[in-house]
Amino acid sequence: MSASTTSTHRWQLLLGVALTIVVALGSAFVLTGATRGAAPAAQSAAAQPLGGDCPDIGSLVAAASTTTASTTATTHGASAAAVRAGLDTVLSRARGLARTTASDDARESVQNLADDLAAYRLSMTRPATDRHADIAATVRADLTALRRLCGH
């Protein structure tokens, strides 16, 4: 083996060691970053601006307003069944949006609406009572909160 060949092999060996250390350090960095990276994902999700949700929220608010406005103390029989069916649809949409939104603010406000719509639907069995009036007022407050959330 010539001296030049030996020298080349030494350089190759040194290069190999250097590359290996770089790879090892890189792996360590990536792993450390990955550990922390999961959290920033959550962080950014929680801090997610809700602008992207506002069209869905606006549509939901409109549907909920229409549906709950159609209930009165004299809503009985077929009209009550129709209102309940409408409420089921709106309730399903609210629960779905509460699950899918990346915004904590939107999630909370939509969840509140879903919770109160469930109570509202139940209170329709007693539309002339204080309970129904109380829950209706709460739903209205939820809708106001959602409108304000999206700057409406």
Partner: peptide, 10 residues
Amino acid sequence: LSTLVAGLGL
């Protein structure tokens, strides 16, 4: 050796 170092690093 490189593999060992990389493994240790991980």
